[in-house]
Design a binder for these strands. Structure first.
Lengths: 184, 184
DNA sequence: CCGTCATTTCAAAAACTTCTGAAATTCATT
DNA sequence: AATGAATTTCAGAAGTTTTTGAAATGACGG
């Protein structure tokens, strides 16, 4: 049912899961669905991975919370079938968005809150460090928001420009931001 | 010894730690060092956080493995003192580099290996999906490598361009990649 | 080369996460 | 309403990670 190639890919995703902040089974389920030609139902996943039915159910639920899988109902079959978006770029966009939501947004909120509530000169150095961090995160997430607006085709074109883009930047920097070296 | 502001920041980093793939104590130690005006020794960290001496020792070791802290020896004091880089951009560069090393590079290696070892037409769909994924990761990491070469000042200028950059890209796309729509 | 202070290692305890099988729930069909 | 297939929930077992105190190691000054 599962080729050696698939098997090895699935096991790798299971192992990497812990580094990616998901658990082994979730990683394996996603890897399986990612490689599969057509959507699979829960029992097929159980058969392919050799884990319990309930574990598969929970893993699918977690993947849905991540918005990473798509539910499909096949003609004349009561069972739910699950698949991944066919377009890899959509997967990347979802992953980045969800990680930002979980790993960055709560901290940005907290930093803003701390800046507001601190009675100013109470603890000047810490206050300054927090402001600096908040500004940096806002710069990065602002850039991300801009890039995220681009259609995939343009985004890919931009990424492929790589080195060539640096010429543009060089010009733009000299032209529009001649001496803004007070960043750090 | 520790202001309310610092306290709250430290607790937040501790809580976020698990989402960021580090543990609570490591997060708290980093937060403390990040805010501190001058480098701290292990016992000061113990006093500030109320965790065991050995836990602090292990957390510092982990932060050193991440290359996120700097050891400093003060005049006439045998104890090691630890601090974070003063330049936040250096911290961001280290974080991105280390996460790439842990979370992406092993998978890229594995994908290349799987593409080599698969006897071609064995499992065409899975093979194609893996190639697609490998190409996408290479595009993204290649772009990252280019950006990472930029000096901070230029990188900041680029990030601040945001929306304005899209005009350049629009032009560049039309000029140099007129009909490359076979990406997905 | 001894005593003292600083740091690291380690094995076991505590805390936490993941996984399972059994029971409960849902829901389309009869 | 009763049936039965699919799915979810849940309490506890299994597994993993984190934290600790105690002992070992290292390192400096006398």
């Amino acid at each position: 049912m599962i080729s050696d190639l698939q098997q090895e890919f699935i096991l790798h995703f299971g192992e990497m899961g812990s580094r990616w902040g998901i658990n082994r089974t979730v990683g394996q389920v996603y890897a399986l669905l990612f490689l599969s030609d057509e959507p699979l139902c829960a029992d097929q996943i159980v058969a392919a991975l050799g884990v319990s039915r309930s574990n598969v159910s929970m893993s699918l639920k977690e993947l849905q919370a991540w918005n990473l899988i798509r539910l499909r109902h096949l003609q004349g079959d009561r069972r739910d079938h699950y698949g991944t978006p066919g377009d890899l770029w959509q997967i990347v966009r979802i992953l980045v968005e969800e990680r930002k939501k979980r790993e960055i947004d709560p901290t940005l909120t907290k930093l803003r809150q701390l800046e507001m509530q601190a009675p100013s000169s109470d603890d000047a150095h810490a206050h300054a460090r927090i402001r600096e961090l908040r500004e940096l995160i806002e710069l990065l997430t602002g850039w991300y928001d801009e890039m995220n607006k681009l259609e995939t085709e343009r985004l890919v074109a931009l990424l492929k420009m790589g080195a060539r883009l640096q010429k543009f930047i060089g010009k733009a920097t000299i032209l529009s931001l001649p001496r803004s070296s007070k960043e750090a």
